[in-house]
Amino acid sequence: MQRYRCDCCLRTYSGLTGTQICGLHRHDLFLEVIRNMLSDTPLSCRKLAARLGLTKDTIWRWRMIILESLAEACDKDFSGVVEVDETYQRESRKGSREWANHAANSNQHPAPPRPQWYVYRSGRIKMARGLSQWQIPLLTVMDRGGRRLFAPIANRRNRTIEIALAPIVPDDAVLCSDGMRAYRAFCKKHSLTHYEVSNKPGKRVVAGAFHIQNVNALHARYDAFIRPFCGPATKYLHRYLRWFLLRAKIKPEAAFRSILAAA
Rank of each mutant, 00 (worst) to 15 (best):
S191G: 07
P152S: 11
A207V: 06
R93P: 02
F210P: 01
I136H: 08
F78Y: 05
C6Q: 01
K126E: 15
V174P: 00
R147H: 15
R11K: 14
G231N: 03
W99E: 01
P170W: 08
Q2K: 13
W117Y: 08
C230D: 09
C74T: 10
R46L: 13
R181I: 06
P228D: 12
K188E: 15
E83P: 07
D77T: 12
P113D: 14
H27E: 07
E253P: 00
R61S: 13
T19D: 01
R221Q: 13
N36S: 04
V205M: 04
A151V: 15
R114T: 07
L131G: 02
P113T: 06
L131N: 11
D143C: 07
R114N: 04
Y88G: 03
W134C: 06
V82Y: 02
A71M: 09
R181W: 08
D57I: 13
L29M: 09
L165I: 09
H25R: 14
D75N: 07
A262R: 12
S92W: 03
R61V: 05
L131W: 13
R124G: 11
F244N: 02
R242W: 09
N107I: 08
S96P: 01
F225A: 03
G15A: 11
R93I: 01
A254W: 05
A173M: 05
D7V: 05
C9M: 02
I161E: 06
T193Q: 11
L70R: 00
L149M: 15
D223C: 07
E86L: 07
P170L: 01
R90L: 11
N155H: 10
R121L: 14
V84S: 09
L38T: 13
Y236G: 01
F225Y: 13
H219T: 12
N36Q: 07
H102Q: 03
T17P: 05
A100Q: 15
D172Q: 08
V206P: 01
E68P: 02
V81Q: 04
R114W: 01
L70E: 10
V33Q: 08
N158F: 09
Y120F: 15
G146F: 10
A111Q: 13
V174H: 00
Y4L: 04
T17N: 06
Y195V: 00
R121T: 11
G15P: 02
R124K: 14
G208A: 09
A151S: 12
E86Y: 06
R221C: 07
S96R: 03
F30P: 02
K203A: 06
Y88W: 15
I34R: 01
R46Q: 12
V205I: 15
R204D: 11
